[in-house]
Design a protein around this nucleic acid. Sequence first.
RNA 1: GCUGGAUUCGUCUAGUGGCCUAGGACAUCAGGUUUUCAUCCUGAAGAUCGCGGGUUCGACUCCCGCAUCCAGUACCA
Length: 508
Amino acid sequence: MDRVRVRFAPSPTGPLHIGGVRTALYNYLFAKQNGGDFLLRIEDTDQTRFVPGAEEYIIEAFQWLGIKFDEGVGIGGPFGPYKQSERKPMYKQYADQLIETGWAYYAFDTPEALDARRKEAEAQKQTFQYDATTRDTLCNSLSLSKEEVAQRLESGAPYVIRFKYPADLDITVHDLIRGDVTINSNLLDDKVLFKSDGMPTYHLANIVDDHTMEISHVIRGEEWLPSAPLHVMLYKAFGWEAPQFAHLPLLLKPDGNGKLSKRDGDRLGFPVFPLQWKDPKSGEISSGYRESGYLPEAVINMLALLGWNPGTEQEMMDLDTLVKLFSIDKISKSGAKFNLEKAKWFNHQYIQLADDERLYTHFEKVLKDHGVTADKEYAIAVMRLIKERVHFLPEFWEQCNYFFVAPTEYDPQAVKKRWKPGTAAHLAKMLDILNSVQPFDKQIVHDKIMEYVQSNELNMGAIMNSFRIALVGAAKGPELFEIISCIGVEETNRRVKAACEKIEEPTL
RNA sequence: GCUGGAUUCGUCUAGUGGCCUAGGACAUCAGGUUUUCAUCCUGAAGAUCGCGGGUUCGACUCCCGCAUCCAGUACCA
């Protein structure tokens, strides 16, 4: 196999699941590391499950994440079209080819007839399987006479094309992560390759497309491992060289067991989708990482480490670093539980790392969402002061609001603890000191206040905290003199006076 | 049920026969820094490596069995 070419092939049935994002990420990393191509193919062979907007959503999600495709839907390329519905005309000939070579057959069984057989088998505690032992008892081109088959086909009777597994054959799939996986063909069901609606199933379309698009490595979720033998057989039936396979471990829900699902996100309060999604039918909204205030690099870093590690103790890695360090043989075999706390930690790290300009675009938006328009320089100064206490972008507001709007309420707990008899008088004195230093100088004011506190045998903590309550409305935020420096002496005077009027001193 | 896969601190993981009295990160707890909150720093606690058998001088690492969990079992992908 010469050139590395991998693909991400989602089906547009709704928003892209975060597990799918990870699959795409691993594909991307592998492609880029090997100087290969990464393509986006849309697998929309099931017309009944098509959801409008899903395709656009997928493209937008990867744009946000900074994962770029070299070819595919929305980009184009020499192997197009990249949407299976647009490739529809080419699949039938491949299905026919399989029939001619004896690797497949027509089946005319109605869904009802098959259902009946399944129920029948179930009643006897057995599993119905369309295979070498049951083909003859069903309605297909192997059990019917040639004439009958020809007549049915001609009359336009609905039919599907099924794969004909050779009996008792050990099929081995070589998986880059799990090694050889072998299964006997007797245990396999003659899968439908071509549906009665004229569309191929996933299996056929997938193999035909991967081959014609010259895909070298198929990196996909573990849920595909059971059907990998079929795919291997299909390549064999066509006489094509099969790509290499790698089946990724699943992303599990944080508590309990099982695949991470949308419901888990709702239940535990974290997004399961990269972007917010509004269901076109129900109107239901599902939260997204972007809207919840995650930085894309944090999402990527976190996802990369859920099932893979560089073999060193390095944890912070941007996309380029991941491209350099990634390797398939360091992918773990078992599923990984999603961990919200770790995701939060990563996001905090990347917020600290983000440069001012970029972080400001997010900060500005948060301000705007709360009806604040501010001078950019001032806003950046504030942002620098508070960013270490935000873990998610929207938290910027609760950490910064008092830099833009005077407090109207005072945290009762803080007041109870810090607002004592005589506080107002002390604060008036603080104001005097503050106003006496012209122009305002952080250090000088600080020293003078310190001096006052010490000479009057007062408690620095008590004084400073009541001061803080007046300015901030709560016991939080950066150094007090930084705050004064930002909001200004005049505003400080106003806020202290307002607080002294509004907050009642407890009586002794 | 059947088939396949997986199984190291609460979680993500390191570990490819002796370096493991099992390392790191998140979370937790305790101290420290800070006038507050957050951050940050230091430290602690936390896995008898799912269980039982082998193989070997020696096993988390190899083999077998069992258990548990997960996935698949559609004219869905």
